[in-house]
């Protein structure tokens, strides 16, 4: 599939933004500026970015506990995200949600989620609503391999199939749910196969390859916009770090396995491709990196300077 150079460079930049954001979160967290749980997306950037590059601003996504990458890729604001995870009032959710609940309805981010499988119903409902309202919007549901064992996954695929809903289920198979290897708790060869009994196409792609993810998503989006219904895309991927900051990520994962995945890093891979195809020079890509670095520094500075919400806000927003 031939993809315009500007999209490839946009994807490269988006992956860098996610990586730098997550590295920054690590710093912020370990220096005590952030509390609670922080699940990092480092290593999985090509999935969020490949998918979201194939979406429009008015399309929807639902995200997960490991949601920072999805939010950055769909157009979340780095400063508002950083402020949110630090509990500041300038955050996307005024500090009420935190890392696991970042949402930005203005760009179709219907919310990260603390419940494993929590996005299945919401994304499928967003697809139903798009159809009822007669738009050609699509809804993407990001979820993990672990979430694919929740019963509601099968319920929503049935809904999506009988009503031909414009939903794309994107499984991020990073081979572990917390400390448990996926294969030990998950039947069948491929999670993608779980779509087949519903008559929904299910494909598996290399989740370290942003171009492959983009291609599979673009096809699924076209199908959904045409009115032909849902698709399940399983992305083979890996988290470099632990389940959350605080879990070293070792012990339950072989060292060689971690190294093998890091050797096919999605960002390096796309960069090589861009340079090899002469779409941009090393120098131009380095400039992108510096630009992202600047953006990140500004976001962090602004978030650190922002105030906490006034305690009076605690009772606000319970009801509309």
């Amino acid at each position: 599939m031939s993809i315009p150079a500007e999209i490839l460079i946009k994807m490269y930049r988006a992956m860098l933004r996610i990586r730098r954001f997550e590295e920054q979160i690590w710093e912020v967290y370990t220096s005590g500026l952030m509390h609670g749980l922080a699940h990092l997306y480092i290593g999985e950037e090509a999935v969020a970015v490949g998918v979201c590059a194939a979406l429009r601003d008015d399309d929807f996504i639902t995200s997960t506990h490991r949601g920072h990458g999805h939010c950055v890729a769909k157009g979340g604001d780095l400063e508002a995200m950083m402020a949110e995870v630090m509990g500041r009032v300038t955050g996307h959710c005024r500090g009420k949600g935190g890392s696991m609940h970042i949402a930005d309805m203005s760009v179709g981010i219907l919310g990260a989620n603390g419940i494993v499988g929590g996005g299945f119903g919401i994304a499928t409902g967003a697809g139903l609503s798009a159809k009822k309202r007669g738009t050609d919007q699509v809804a993407v549901c990001f979820f993990g391999d672990g979430a694919s064992n929740q019963g509601i996954f099968f319920e929503v695929m049935n809904f999506a199939a009988i009503w031909k809903l414009p939903v794309i289920y994107v499984c991020e198979n990073n081979h572990y749910g917390e400390y448990t290897p996926t294969a030990s708790v998950t039947a069948g060869e491929r999670i993608a196969d779980r779509a087949l009994p519903f008559g929904i196409p299910g494909t598996t792609v290399d989740g370290s390859d942003a171009i492959a993810v983009y291609g599979a998503t673009a096809e699924a989006v076209a199908r959904a916009r045409r009115g032909d219904g849902a698709t399940l895309i399983e992305c083979d991927t890996y988290r470099y770090r632990g389940h959350h900051v605080g879990d070293p990520g070792e012990g339950y994962r072989p060292k060689e396995e971690i190294e093998a995945w890091m050797a096919k890093d999605p960002i390096e891979r796309l960069r090589k491709k861009i340079v090899a195809d002469d779409l941009a020079s090393e120098a131009e890509l380095d400039a992108e990196m510096r630009e992202v670095e600047r953006e990140m520094e500004n976001a962090l500075k602004a978030a650190k300077a922002a105030p906490y919400p006034d305690v009076a806000e605690v009772k606000k927003h319970v009801y509309a």
Partner: peptide, 10 residues
């Protein structure tokens, strides 16, 4: 009687 907010002071 509110959902538990994230931000520490809240």
């Amino acid at each position: 009687d509110v959902p538990v907010p994230f931000s520490k002071p809240l």
